[in-house]
């Protein structure tokens, strides 16, 4: 069974009198262990689609089944649990909580999962070491580089060991060297940890790291190719 099963997703934004379909009946199925890049021009609906996948927003119509759960039926609390347990987010702007240490940031998803402090701290040290931030546990976001901040975000995304990682332009704010570093982590997460990854990017260099590329245009998928390896 597919991890992600989205059918006919329509998302309409209403500004004033104007109705605008940001997503125009998108259907996409993603298997466990896939590494999918989503590409497309600015405004084509990539982020809108990611928000649907991330259970942050609800479609106007269509169904979305994640890991066997029909997400469209869930209430707000259940959605929070799905976000907490089934997926990790990596955003373009890092989205760490400011003036809070790396260690505390990484612990957040575990706090909301209800894990005991002792275990939480142990796991936070562990994942920070995985992303190569050993010794930086007590740094605040503004005391480390952008690449390091994004690595904290990755550590946070895998803290609860979810099957799915959603990344919306994770390298958008980073230079080439740091982007390569970050992408290597995504490859590692995909290949060594078996995470399913959906990653939005504008750059074909970044898409190179992925196994499958989906193209969006005006709220619809116009191409979907699996790369040979």
């Amino acid at each position: 069974m597919a991890l992600i099963e989205a059918k006919n997703i329509i998302k309409t934004y209403i500004t004033g009198d104007e109705h605008f379909n940001a997503l125009n009946g998108v259907s996409l199925s993603i298997e466990k262990g896939e590494f999918v890049a989503i590409m497309g021009a600015s405004g084509s609906g990539k982020s809108t689609f990611m928000n649907m996948l991330g259970c942050l927003d609800k479609p106007n119509s269509g169904t979305y089944v994640l890991d066997g759960i029909n997400v469209t039926d869930l209430n707000l609390n259940e959605l929070a649990d799905v976000r907490n347990l089934k997926m990790g987010f990596v955003f373009q702007g890092f989205n760490l909580i400011s003036r809070t240490t790396a260690l505390d940031n990484v612990q957040l998803p575990m706090i909301y999962k209800g894990i005991e402090e002792e275990e939480r701290v142990k796991r936070a040290y562990e994942v920070l070491e995985i992303v190569g931030l050993k010794g930086r546990e007590h740094h605040m976001p503004n005391q480390i580089s952008g690449g390091q901040q994004q690595r904290v975000a990755i550590a946070r995304a895998i803290a609860n060991d979810p099957p799915l990682i959603l990344a919306d332009e994770p390298t958008g704010n980073l230079d080439t060297k740091m982007s390569i570093e970050i992408m290597n982590f995504f490859v590692k997460m995909n290949e060594e940890m078996g995470k399913t990854i959906v990653l939005v990017t504008h750059e074909s260099d970044i898409a190179e790291y992925c196994k499958r590329v989906v193209h969006f245009k005006d709220g619809s998928i116009i191409s979907d190719e699996v790369k040979r390896k």
Binding site: N77, A80, D81, R83, N84, G88, F89, N95, S98, Y112
Partner: peptide
């Protein structure tokens, strides 16, 4: 507000 958004995205419920 942004912090609240981040917390909700990673699993905080309204009551939390």
């Amino acid at each position: 507000t942004k912090e609240i958004g981040i917390r909700m995205a990673i699993g905080a419920k309204a009551q939390d």
